[in-house]
């Protein structure tokens, strides 16, 4: 029963897990992977955010895991529902890269940067401390949140591994 399971969090998905399991999201480019973790209960959640704000949504029933402004409060709510203590929850984030040096008028410009900024603003508003982050640059990232330790491991294409 204590075997660690790796739970995949896909693009625009949100998942919660308890110790000793692992939440993993792969191939973050301009997307941001946010992990919230309560060390006292050893419970955490992860969301793979694509876009900064649902204000740009042109769909009637937006998926909350996709937009930063909806995803962060939703992740917080879900964690509390599963028994996490709001005052103990801390954040770690990674991603928000610019994969291609584009010069176009389109909305994708600096989307990574805008995703990160929006996450920072929301965490500040909600008084959730940021324990560590690895954002920006021009490389893809894969992250894993380990519920037994609360560590967030980050790997890139050239296998460099960081631990937050």
């Amino acid at each position: 029963m204590n075997e660690k399971t790796v739970i995949r969090v896909g693009m625009a998905e949100l998942k919660i897990a308890t110790s000793p399991h692992i939440l993993r999201t792969s191939g973050l480019g301009s997307c941001v992977g946010m992990a919230l973790y309560d060390a006292s209960e050893r419970i955490g959640g992860m969301v793979h955010i694509m876009l900064p704000t649902s204000k740009i949504a042109r769909e009637t029933d937006p998926n909350p895991a996709k937009y930063a402004d909806l995803a962060v409060p939703k992740l917080m709510d879900e964690l509390i529902k599963f028994g996490a203590k709001p005052s103990k929850i801390k954040a770690k984030l990674a991603g928000g890269a610019q994969m291609f040096a584009f010069k176009s008028e389109s909305e994708m410009i600096k989307i990574g940067l805008r995703n990160v900024e929006m996450c920072h603003n929301l965490l500040k508003q909600m008084s959730i401390p940021i324990e560590g982050e690895d954002v920006g640059g021009n490389s893809g990232r894969t992250i894993e949140l380990h519920m037994d330790t609360g560590k967030l491991t980050i790997s890139t294409a050239n296998k460099l591994i960081k631990e937050l």
Binding site: L51, R58, M108
Partner: peptide
């Protein structure tokens, strides 16, 4: 760019992300 498939495809999927 030579990188993770998910990461390089992110940008191209953004226009669909809003719908």
């Amino acid at each position: 760019n030579i990188d993770m498939a998910g990461a390089v495809l992110n940008d191209g999927l953004i226009p669909f992300g809003t719908v």
